[in-house]
Amino acid sequence: MRLEPVANPTLTRQLGLPALALLCTVVIASLLAMIAGAQPFSVLGLIVKGAFGSKFAALETLNRATPLIFTGLAVAVAFRAQLWNIGAEAQLYMGAVVTVVLGTGALSWPAFALLPTIAIAAMLAGAVALLVPTFLKTRFGVDEVVTTLLLNFVVLLWVSMLLEGALKDPMGLGWPKSARLIAEARLPRIMDGLRLHWGFGLALISALVVWVIQRRTTLGYEMRAVGLNAEAARFAGIPVNAVLIKTALLSGGLAALAGFSEVAGLKGNLTLDISPGFGYTGIIVAMLALLNPLGVVVAALFVAGIFVGADSMSRAAGVPTYLADIMLAFALLLMVLAIMLTKFRVRRS
């Protein structure tokens, strides 16, 4: 078997193959459910029901999707410029820390002034967390995969230190958690009585903004040029390093918004388990979305749905929630394969 490049892939090819990948994922998940001794269709039904079956479930899925949209966008923006940001997790925690520092009473402004201030400050903190590895890359050629990945652990330990020290809630009975945000620093709910906060709205707006930046602005054009061929971009006069720095600012800022939205919208305070790996899952989300910012929203809903649905399925059918991880892993692998097959055709020899 050989691969032959496809000159101009048709739209059916570009959309059909990823759809087929998702279908295969479902089939594989069904087989695994059977091995676990459950009815495959009932398991899938339970996952869908658990994720979208009731208003409560659907809102839970949207809540879970919110940080994934932010980290997915962060990764998609960076990867598009071939800046390999594996550190969305660290940038998320930077945003969360800043939110707590400014939101627990240090500034007592009205909400309309306080919330944007905190959001911007959080973005700056996340941007700095990615700026350092990017600077090391552009200046000394240090591989950003290594530095951003390792910074995740550094930042997590630093947050742990803060939660045991400077940021520790004096009323927290000794638990490593921060004090609660003041009311003005909380993101309001989208509708009264709905357990969905404005972080989700902010995530949707961010996706739209990123899409506009990439398609309609010179910066987006520069980012794509640098990602596809940095040498040609440099020759044409595009300041490659400056573009990478700007990409890092945007990417780190977006990841930090995930931390801001989780603390200010959902949890109300900072603990060490505020992110169950949203930064890493963001990579899966971005890849599933083929790095398209609007696709990130869909992919984040898909991933969040699987997680939320698997929780409730596990309770009902007795199949371990690990099924969710396996499904995501297969979805990612098959999607990468599907992406390749949209560009290449397999020929039998």
Binding site: Y221, R224, A225, L228, N229, E231, A232, A233, F235, A236, I238
Partner: peptide
Amino acid sequence: KTGTIADFDLTENAVL
């Protein structure tokens, strides 16, 4: 390698 970006279309290459 330096004159064009292979995966850009003609328009994107023309205004590089």
